[in-house]
Each structure stands twice: as C-alpha cells, then as structure tokens.
C-alpha cells in the first residue's frame, strides 16, 4: 500500500532547451501539510502544473495516490483541488456564480456554494462581480473553488499571496483544520519559510528545479547548526590565523566573522589563539541561525 499522496520519480521538465525541473523525487505523505518552498522561479508552479497534468510529462513519473497521472488522469483529478498562481476566476461573474459554474461542472449541489462562501468569509461579497474583488478576496474565492469538490488532496500555490495578516492566519488555521480534522493532504507552496513552518508537517525545498531538502520540519531544524560570532580589531588577519588552524569560516559581514565550533572549550581556544597572535577581541558569542537564514543557505548553495 502506497502511503504517498504525491510521488514523483526522477521527474524532469524542460521548456525548450531550458531545464525547469531536474530529477525531482517528491514524496508527499498522506495526511501531511507539505510546505513546498523555494525562491521565485525555482520551479514550484511548474511542478504543481505537472501534478495537475497541465504540462505533459512521460508516463510513470508522477503518481497521485499511487496512480500514474497520465493513464488515470480523471480518476486522479477527482481527488484533487487546486489553486494555481493567481486564482483563475471569471471576472464577469459574481463570486457565487463562479462557484455555481464549478459546481455545475463537477455535479455538486448548489447549497455547497453558500457553505463555502461562508467558510472563506465571502458571504457579503457573494453577489459582487469577482473582477471587482480585491486580490485577497480573489484568493479566498480561489480557495473556495479548490475546496468545492471536497478533495482528498489540495494543491495550493502561494495561497496567502495578497492576504492581510488576519487573512493569512485564517488560511493557516483552515489548512490545519483540513489536515487534522478531515485528513486532507495539502501541498502548499511558498517562497517564505516563516509562513510555512507554522503549519507544515513536512518540507521540501526546491531551487533551480532541484530538490535540496525533503523531510519533516524537525529534520530541517536539526540541520540548523549554531555559529560563533567574533568581533575583532582586525577581522582580515583573524580570518587568516583561523584558516591556518583549519577552522571553517561560515561568512563575514562588515564588523563580524562567523565560524563553526564544537563546544565551549573550543570557544576559549579560539579566543586564546586570536589573543596570542596580537588580535584584540571585542566580542565573542554564539548565534543560532533562524530557519529563514538556513533556507537562504540551502537555496544559495546550488
């Protein structure tokens, strides 16, 4: 029995000669909230479009609940709801009519539309033309459209784009509720780690089409090694002295150097090393990188 809602096997995709996705092996466990992270242009939206069979890929590279998307397209799509890029809604129809039209296509009762309008807080704007909605309202309508068929798997491409802080919290809570109470699997893409780490159970980090990290959020935190921050009267000379002793310099900014260390004794040794070489040490201390910097580190390496 396959435990993955989404699985891709060595998935690659090119636009002409440009490589967009390279050997991607996504494993999204059932019931998880999978944060799909990457900077703009990393290939997130392309991946989501591939998962929806909008972009053509070879057989046996994309599996939805264990079924190949190419050979079981309709069966797979029945289990999926999606919001890709900006929500695609008919501007000349009202919010309610947009939902009605989708309900018509999917054979869903009309009353479900009202329930969803209420759920995403668009009750009052139900009869307003969707073209006149603010970006946040469009986003909510897009989410309502994605939820209409009560799918087991939700693909949400930057769903909090354009939402105000309240809206972001609401969507976050909605995602948690859907996953916990209704056992939905959610793949949510974002370029902001801070936004994802509050909801996601699993994280995949993609950059330039390649998956750089995949695993539970706790595994990502384990990667987060603390650094030693030192300020001296001569940072350049200090770097030379430390490098000669084989100490790894992580980075340097205007006033400080950041390096790796093992333990407290090691800190004292580093301090002594600098002092005996005639360097004035103004400050020395440990610093924990936040996940955001870790994310930047991971994505800047490839």
């Amino acid at each position: 029995m396959n435990n993955f809602a989404i699985q891709t096997v060595d998935l690659s995709y090119n636009f002409g000669s440009q490589v967009i996705i390279k050997d991607l092996n996504l494993n999204v466990p059932k019931g998880s909230i999978y944060g799909f992270l990457g900077p703009n242009g990393a290939g997130k939206t392309t991946t989501i479009k591939i998962l929806l069979n909008l972009l053509r890929t070879p057989n046996d590279t994309v599996f939805i609940f264990g079924k190949d998307i190419n050979t079981h397209r309709i069966e797979c799509l029945k289990k999926m709801g999606s919001l890709v890029e900006q929500p695609a809604i008919y501007g000349h129809l009202t919010g309610k009519e947009n939902l009605r039209n989708r309900a018509l296509l999917l054979g869903i009762r009309k009353s479900k539309c009202d329930e969803l309008l209420k759920l995403v807080g668009l009750n009052d704007a139900a009869n307003k033309k969707a073209g006149k909605y603010s970006l946040g309202m469009k986003q909510r309508l897009g989410i309502a459209l994605a939820l209409l068929s009560d799918p087991d798997l939700l693909l949400l491409d930057e769903p909090t784009n354009g939402l105000d802080p309240n809206g972001i919290i609401e969507i976050r809570n909605l995602m948690i509720e859907l996953a916990e109470k209704h056992q939905k699997t959610i793949l949510v893409s974002s370029h902001l780690l801070a936004e994802i780490e509050k909801t996601a159970t699993h994280i995949g980090i993609i950059n330039k089409g390649a998956l750089l990290f995949q695993g539970e959020v706790s595994e990502l935190r384990n990667l987060n090694k603390p650094a030693l921050k030192i300020e001296t009267n001569n940072n350049n000379l200090s770097i030379q002295i430390l490098a000669q002793k084989g100490i790894e310099i992580l980075r340097k900014d205007t006033g400080s150097i950041y390096l790796t260390y093992q333990d407290k004794t090691n800190i004292a040794q580093i301090n002594a090393l600098l002092v005996t070489n005639g360097i004035d040490v103004y400050g020395i201390g440990t610093e924990n990188k936040d996940l955001e910097n870790l994310f930047l580190d991971i994505t800047s390496k490839n």
Partner: peptide, 18 residues
C-alpha cells in the same frame, strides 16, 4: 477569450473532465 482573459484554461483542464 473568456478563458484566455481570466486565465482559466488551467482550471478548466484541471477538472476531472475529459
């Protein structure tokens, strides 16, 4: 154009319809 303008080809073709 109703689909081009609203960018809805992608939603139309991600519905479980042939």
């Amino acid at each position: 154009n109703i689909e081009h303008k609203n960018d809805t080809w992608k939603t139309l073709f991600s519905q479980p319809l042939n």
